[in-house]
């Protein structure tokens, strides 16, 4: 990272996948940290979609182009192939229909970047195994009954879904607790065990 602004490691991995000057839509862009970085450091033409009023207020006040809305309702209104990259960062697990979401994203963009917490991480597995309860930790801080996350998956699950949907995985990276990145393709077993988060670059065909 030799850029002027520094962002979270997982966001940096996403940012590195994006070509300068590209048309980008960040779905669930939160306070606009990634979008702001992409606009100022990579000169992208950036748009955001965010459900929380606080997030949208912050983004627009920063001068970012962000629409307050619900991705599961509003993505259908965007024209086909309007973007070079569509980003869904840490949001897939909170959607009602993850497969439909990925399909919708691929309609809007040539390439889609999805990141999510990996439910196959060894700590999650051991928590469930030893405690017999749904895991609660730093990356998954909610109880099962108040969690916004309704569709957890493992890295392997996600790959299987992409196969079922005929979606091509162009790149896939797992991040461990220390922020170390692994290429998933070279060793899926270990990536699925050691990766706390995963970042996938997808394209249709």
């Amino acid at each position: 990272m030799n850029n002027a602004k520094s962002i979270r490691v997982d966001l940096q991995i996403i940012a590195d996948m994006i070509e300068p000057g590209a048309r980008v839509l960040d779905v669930g862009c939160s306070d606009g940290q990634l979008l702001d970085y992409l606009v100022t450091e990579k000169g992208v033409s950036g748009r955001g979609l965010e459900i929380s009023p606080e997030g949208v207020n912050l983004c627009v006040a920063k001068g970012l182009s962000v629409v307050q809305g619900d991705a599961e309702e509003d993505l259908g209104y965007y024209p086909e192939d309007a973007f070079d990259f569509v980003i869904l960062s840490q949001t897939l697990q909170a959607t009602h229909h993850p497969d439909k979401m990925v399909k919708d994203l691929l309609r809007l963009g040539k390439r889609v970047i999805v990141s999510f917490p990996n439910f196959g991480h060894w700590r999650v597995r051991s928590y469930l195994f030893f405690h017999g309860r749904m895991p609660v930790n730093e990356t998954l801080p909610y109880q099962w009954y108040n969690s916004p996350n309704m569709h957890f998956c493992t890295i392997k699950d996600f790959i299987c879904m992409c196969d079922d949907m005929g979606v091509t995985i162009e790149r896939s990276i797992a991040l461990d607790a220390a922020g170390q990145a692994y290429r998933i393709r070279t060793n899926l077993f270990f990536a699925n065990l050691l990766g706390e988060q995963a970042v996938f670059l997808l394209r249709k065909d």
Partner: peptide
């Protein structure tokens, strides 16, 4: 306002939208 925003996104316009509480 959402109708306006959807029209604008449909035209791939540069649009922000805020519903102020």
């Amino acid at each position: 306002s959402r109708v306006i925003v959807r029209g604008l996104t449909g035209a791939a316009a540069n649009v922000s939208y805020v519903d102020v509480e």
